[in-house]
Computed example of a mutant assay.
Amino acid sequence: MLYVIGIGPGGLDMMTYQAREAIEQADVIVGYKTYTHLIKALVGDKPVIKTGMCKELERCQAALELAQNGKTVALVSSGDAGIYGMAGLILELVSKQDWYVDVKVIPGMTASIAAGAVLGAPLMHDFCHISLSDLLTPWPVIEKRIQAAADADFVICFYNPRSRGREGHLRRAFELMAPYKAPTTPVGIVKEAGRRKQQHWLTTLEAMDFELVDMRTLVVVGNQSTYVDNGLMVTPRGYQV
């Protein structure tokens, strides 16, 4: 059995009971080293196979091999395993290669939900997720999606917004949104949502400080109805209040 587990944003109190139970039942844990560290209190003396960044395929192959050999395996992803996590890759490998493994995907809280609760209620109306990492998606495709989402007035949650190798991507995303969103559009920034060092800021499209943002940050850009009141970011659903 292979459990593909979303462990949530990082804090153990935000992990689902189902995820904890799957980790408890596993014989071996597989994951990116940062994520295995976040759950070390639950792992005990179980063997852990951990790898660094950009080793997703190797992690999945190792997990599948262990499961095919009779082990109960927990492959962990932060947030939700089906949102920029390992669930899709595992299922692609199972469908395209000769793996005879039972796979169960265990959902988790994705970063936008954790960040949204910190900010208030910015995701009350239609919203979308866009990753600014161009490691697997061509940057022209990402630009097209940013423009389309802004034109459609979605609240936009930016994952993987800024890193040492991609310092200008978030600034470019804001330039692409500018023709469609007012300069005063509220923007929420949450760093390390759900973790011990969590921080957050509220700003606007025109006043955005890109230096606050790194790979551990989620950026939420509001729609034309989003407002800030008493330090909380709110996107109305449309109820008559």
Rank of each mutant, 00 (worst) to 15 (best):
L75A: 12
R59A: 01
L91C: 11
T51P: 01
C60V: 13
S78L: 04
M53D: 06
A87I: 13
G82K: 07
V73R: 08
L89C: 06
V101A: 08
Q68E: 15
T51I: 10
L66M: 15
K50T: 10
L66N: 03
A74L: 12
Y84M: 07
M109W: 02
D80G: 04
T72M: 13
C54R: 08
K96A: 07
S78A: 13
D45H: 14
G70R: 05
R59V: 00
V94K: 11
V48P: 08
K46C: 12
K71W: 03
A67W: 13
K71P: 01
K71C: 08
K46M: 11
T51V: 14
Y84I: 14
A63P: 15
G70D: 14
D80M: 04
A67M: 06
M86T: 02
Y84K: 10
G85C: 11
S78G: 06
A74G: 09
V48I: 14
V76F: 06
K104A: 06
L93K: 11
V101H: 06
V103H: 12
A41R: 10
A63L: 14
E92G: 07
S78Y: 00
V101Y: 00
V94H: 04
T51C: 11
V43Q: 07
V94S: 09
W99T: 09
V76C: 04
V105R: 03
P47T: 05
G82A: 15
K104P: 00
V101R: 05
T72R: 15
C54H: 14
V94E: 13
D45S: 15
L93P: 01
A41C: 01
I90F: 07
K96Y: 13
G85S: 10
D80F: 00
D98A: 12
M86C: 06
E58M: 04
L93N: 01
G70Y: 03
L66G: 08
Y100G: 02
Q61N: 09
M53E: 15
D102H: 14
I90P: 13
C54Y: 12
A62Y: 10
K55W: 06
I49S: 00
A87V: 11
T51W: 03
Y100P: 02
L57D: 07
Q61C: 11
L91H: 10
V73S: 12
T51Y: 15
K40Q: 15
P47S: 01
K55Q: 14
G82H: 09
G88K: 01
V43A: 11
K46F: 03
G79D: 03
D45I: 01
K55E: 14
M86I: 04
K55D: 09
I106R: 04
I49Y: 15
G79Q: 05
S78P: 04
L75H: 05
L42D: 06
I39A: 12
L91A: 03
K40N: 12
I106W: 05
V48C: 09
I90M: 12
V103T: 10
C60A: 14
T72L: 07
P107Y: 10
V94I: 10
V103M: 13
V101N: 07
